[in-house]
Write a protein that binds this DNA or RNA. Structure first.
Lengths: 151, 151
DNA sequence: TTAATACCTAAACCTGACTTTAGGTCAAGG
DNA sequence: CCTTGACCTAAAGTCAGGTTTAGGTATTAA
């Protein structure tokens, strides 16, 4: 059993945030001893799930909904599973968005590397939009949503 | 040259957002014809960069800063390159966070699959924290930040 | 005994990124 | 001529997710 201060230290989350989460109903079963919150393993695991769902794009209200399902026992297994499946798909989608962002960033890094070496952007601009070095052209196309044309 | 309405359609961005970006200084060179905004290729490319930097975690103010650098010409190549390098590192970091989130989500999917099949969580709980099936154990460890212990 | 800590609440406040509102200009079509 | 549609501005409003403030309790340490 941990106090709010200990949990705050362990997870590097402000105390005010933990209280806010509690107020929002994210720890529905948390016990208290003369008014003082006692975080058990259950709440610790809840914190990991909260972080996971938050990162996956869920709002606090929706996370609360999930926490309520867990209180309803085996009746809600299917709903909970569905939620995680949906979140998984969302995160996979987000990763692939970030990969595209990364392609743009890599392209821009190359762009400025080259501009610095050349002292100007002129040479690069002359290569646009399809005479870039092959590796760079791939990044450029990905970042500009240019699909390979039919043969 | 495009009107704000055309750009809004092309990129699926609300007109109000485009005006907001303009007001925040994200299109410092945009021309107008009798008060009406004219989006050129320059602003179109700016929009792609805005999206990229936004996704990478930059705030609007910081993106404005970048747009101002581009106006200063070759003098700011190095700063701009540095910015993209930093953003690249940030996005790589975020992707790896999402990978860990994905491990948690996969673990939870397995968890509820199994719980549904068993009709209860008991069997699973009995396997915690280190008697899970090997593949699942990996996900669990990753999601719970458990490093492999020294041999 | 008093002063520092660690905890508590309710309610106000903050921030970023938009969105909405209210009121106005201007060109084309019926 | 007058209405419709696409544009414009300034300013107020919204929303999520916290954070801060103000005031209070309980335990411990000098």
């Amino acid at each position: 059993m941990y106090t709010i201060g200990q949990v705050s230290e362990m997870f590097n989350i402000p105390i005010s945030t933990l209280r806010y989460y509690d107020k929002e109903g994210l720890f529905p079963d948390m016990e208290r001893q003369s008014g003082i919150r006692k975080f058990s393993e259950q709440e610790i695991e809840a914190l990991r799930v909260i972080d996971c769902l938050k990162v996956s794009g869920l709002e606090i209200k929706e996370i609360k909904q999930f926490m309520e399902w867990t209180k309803e026992g085996s009746r809600t297994f299917a709903q909970r599973k569905q939620l995680f499946e949906t979140r998984k798909a969302a995160v996979e989608e987000e990763i692939s968005q970030l990969q595209k962002t990364l392609d743009m960033l890599k392209y821009k890094c190359w762009y400025y590397d080259t501009a610095i070496a050349d002292g100007s952007e002129e040479n690069i601009i002359a290569m646009l939009p399809d005479k870039l070095p092959p590796e760079i052209q791939k990044l450029y196309n990905s970042a500009h949503e240019i699909e390979k044309e039919a043969a």
